[in-house]
């Protein structure tokens, strides 16, 4: 996308520079309209944009959570004071500031808020999704490898906004079982 944008930008810049070099001859308006308006103004962007839109919709469609593939379900609740996470596989268990997930498996995060609007964002795992009062929004994330992934709140939420961060810890299979086996205190 970046390369395409750069190419288009370069094209426009060249077209912009040329008239300063070639001393213009008053071409008939009809020809100018055909070249500049119909060709470059209408046909060219429409072709590029149609391709881009098709690409965007396809990718967007692929990122949607699907009910059938047996993903792990967790719950993330945002508050101005921090994020709390709960686990469907272990009812009653909750963690603050750290979300534990298994690596290599799809996880659906049900995002809610306890006060104002927040946004759940782990840049390396997925795009962001808002936590909105009265709604449960579900985001599909998947960590390829075990490790810690930084997450942040990405919707301005007042005074403590800058510090509203959390970590996603992805465990390998053994670690995940160990986490589930811990005493839910």
């Amino acid at each position: 996308m970046l390369a395409g944008a750069a190419a288009i930008f370069a094209l426009v810049m060249v077209l912009l520079a040329l008239p300063f070099l070639r001393r213009g001859k008053d071409a008939p308006e009809a020809r100018g309209i055909k070249v500049w308006i119909i060709g470059l103004g209408l046909a060219f962007p429409m072709a590029v944009l149609a391709a881009l839109l098709a690409y965007g919709l396809t990718v967007g469609e692929r990122l949607l959570p699907r009910a059938e593939d047996g993903a792990i379900r967790v719950e993330a609740e945002g508050r101005q004071s921090g994020w709390t996470f709960r686990y469907a596989d272990q009812p009653g268990r909750s963690t603050s500031g750290v979300l534990h997930i298994p690596a290599g498996r799809p996880v659906d995060v049900d995002i809610t808020t306890g006060d104002v609007i927040h946004s759940f964002w782990v840049p390396r795992l997925a795009g962001k999704l808002d936590a909105i009062p009265g709604y449960v929004n579900t985001l599909r994330i998947e960590a390829d490898a075990p490790g810690d992934y930084a997450g942040v709140s990405a919707e301005f939420s007042g005074i403590g906004y800058a510090g509203l961060t959390f970590t996603v810890t992805a465990h390998d299979e053994a670690g995940w079982q160990a986490f589930l086996g811990d005493d839910p205190q």
């Binding site: 426009v12 077209l15 912009l16 040329l18 008239p19 300063f20 001393r23 213009g24 008053d26 071409a27 308006e29 100018g32 309209i33 070249v35 500049w36 308006i37 470059l40 103004g41 209408l42 060219f44 962007p45 429409m46 944009l49 881009l52 839109l53 965007g56 919709l57 967007g60």
Partner: peptide, 27 residues
């Protein structure tokens, strides 16, 4: 998303009409 891409078309028409104007004249 579709509408947001489409809005670039009339914008493009204007941009290229202006560049075409420059080509017709002596900037």
């Amino acid at each position: 998303s579709a509408a947001s891409t489409l809005v670039a078309v009339p914008t493009g028409v204007q941009i290229f009409a202006w560049i075409g104007t420059m080509w017709r004249g002596r900037p």
